[in-house]
C-alpha cells in the first residue's frame, strides 16, 4: 500500500494491524511522536491524518492506504502554535508536547477563534503529568489571537 508521510510518498507492506505510531517511530525514525499509553487514552501520540488529529497508537496501518499523515516534524518549529508555545514557555519535561501541539494545530484549523469550551473539548484528551495545562490554554489563545 501507499501513503504519504509529511509530504513524502511511502510504501508499506508490513502487518496491516501495526499501529501508525510504531511505523513512524521505529520504521521511519520519526521520534517526535511519543508513546505513553498505547490505548488512545493520553494523546501523546497525536498526529494528523487527512488534516484531522488522530491517536497514532490506535490507527492501524491498514486504514491508511492513500492517506496523508503529518507529524510534529513537518511543522519545522515554524508554526504559529509552536511560536506561541515557545513564547509561553509551555513545556516542562516536554514529552507530551508534540501531541499537545498537534491537537492544538488541528483545533485551530477547525476553529480559528476557539472558546474556552472548544479548548476544553479538544485538549482534555491529552494528558500532561507535569501539569502545563494553564500555559497550553494561554498559548492556544495567543496563537489564535483571542483574549486570554
Amino acid at each position: 500500500m501507499q501513503l504519504k508521510v509529511n509530504g513524502t510518498n511511502r510504501a508499506f507492506d508490513g502487518d496491516p494491524e501495526m499501529p501508525l505510531l510504531w511505523y513512524l517511530r521505529d520504521l521511519l525514525d520519526l521520534k517526535g511522536t511519543k508513546y505513553s499509553c498505547g490505548l488512545g487514552l493520553c494523546g501523546s501520540c497525536t498526529v494528523h491524518v487527512e488534516g484531522k488529529a488522530v491517536r497514532s497508537c490506535q490507527t492501524r496501518m491498514g486504514s491508511l492506504a492513500g492517506k496523508s499523515v503529518v507529524t510534529i516534524e513537518a511543522l519545522n518549529g515554524q508554526h504559529a502554535v509552536q511560536k506561541a508555545w515557545m513564547e509561553a514557555s509551555v513545556p516542562q519535561c516536554g514529552y507530551c508536547q508534540s501531541g499537545q501541539i498537534m491537537q492544538a494545530v488541528a483545533l485551530l484549523k477547525e476553529k480559528p477563534k476557539p472558546t474556552d469550551q472548544d479548548i476544553d473539548a479538544a485538549m482534555q484528551g491529552i494528558i500532561c503529568r507535569c501539569g502545563t495545562y494553564q500555559r497550553i490554554r494561554t498559548a492556544i489563545k495567543a496563537a489564535a489571537g483571542v483574549k486570554a
Partner: peptide, 21 residues
Amino acid sequence: KNVPAAHQQDTINGKGLFGYD
C-alpha cells in the same frame, strides 16, 4: 530573567531525545 530552558525549543519541535527515543 526567564530565559527559556535549553531543551524547550527541541521538545516543541519534536526533536527532544528521551530514553524511549
